[in-house]
Simulated scan of single mutants.
Amino acid sequence: MFTPTECIEIRVKSRHALDDRLEAAVQDLKEAAMRSRTCGILITRHQPGQYTAELSDQVPFGLTREHCR
């Protein structure tokens, strides 16, 4: 079973910064996902301005999903 190890924390104060940071995180994670080909990318909003982007075996390879807590 795949154990995700790639996780990027994102903390921002503006929408513009959020868009830039999320795009950069997704691009970095895409490279890692291509190596394993077993998971997709999960973006989780924990609270306003606080997100994580991570590889997840709960998301099919090739997809990115968003989740709010």
Rank of each mutant, 00 (worst) to 15 (best):
E23N: 06
T38L: 15
M34W: 12
R37G: 13
G62W: 02
R37C: 13
T64N: 00
A53N: 00
L18F: 03
C68E: 09
I41K: 03
C68D: 15
R21N: 14
K13P: 00
R21W: 13
R45I: 11
I43P: 03
F2N: 05
D19G: 00
Q27F: 14
V59L: 05
K13F: 03
M1A: 13
D28R: 10
T52H: 08
R37M: 11
V59C: 08
P4S: 08
S36Y: 14
D57E: 08
A32N: 05
L42I: 03
R65P: 03
L42F: 00
K30V: 04
G62N: 02
A25V: 07
R37N: 14
Q27G: 02
A25R: 07
R35E: 15
Q50D: 10
A32Y: 14
A33H: 03
G40K: 05
F61E: 00
S36N: 15
A53W: 05
R15S: 09
T44K: 05
C68W: 06
V12E: 05
S56F: 04
T52R: 02
E66M: 01
L42H: 00
K13Q: 09
S14F: 00
A24K: 08
C7N: 14
Q50E: 05
V26F: 07
H16V: 12
H16M: 11
R21E: 14
H16L: 07
L18E: 06
Y51I: 14
A32T: 12
R37D: 11
I43K: 12
M1V: 13
V26M: 03
G49T: 06
Q27I: 13
T52D: 10
E31W: 11
A24T: 13
I10S: 09
D57V: 04
S36K: 10
Q50N: 12
R45H: 09
D20Q: 15
E54S: 07
C7W: 01
I43N: 00
A25T: 04
R35Q: 15
E6M: 07
V59F: 06
Q50W: 05
E54I: 02
V12Y: 01
L42C: 01
P4I: 10
R65I: 13
E31K: 02
G49A: 03
V26G: 05
F61C: 03
R15E: 15
T5S: 09
L18H: 04
K30Q: 08
R15I: 10
S56I: 04
S14T: 13
R65S: 09
H16Q: 13
C68P: 02
H16D: 15
D19E: 13
C39P: 12
R21F: 13
I8L: 09
H67V: 12
I10L: 10
T38I: 11
I8Y: 08
F61A: 00
G49V: 07
I41V: 13
C39D: 10
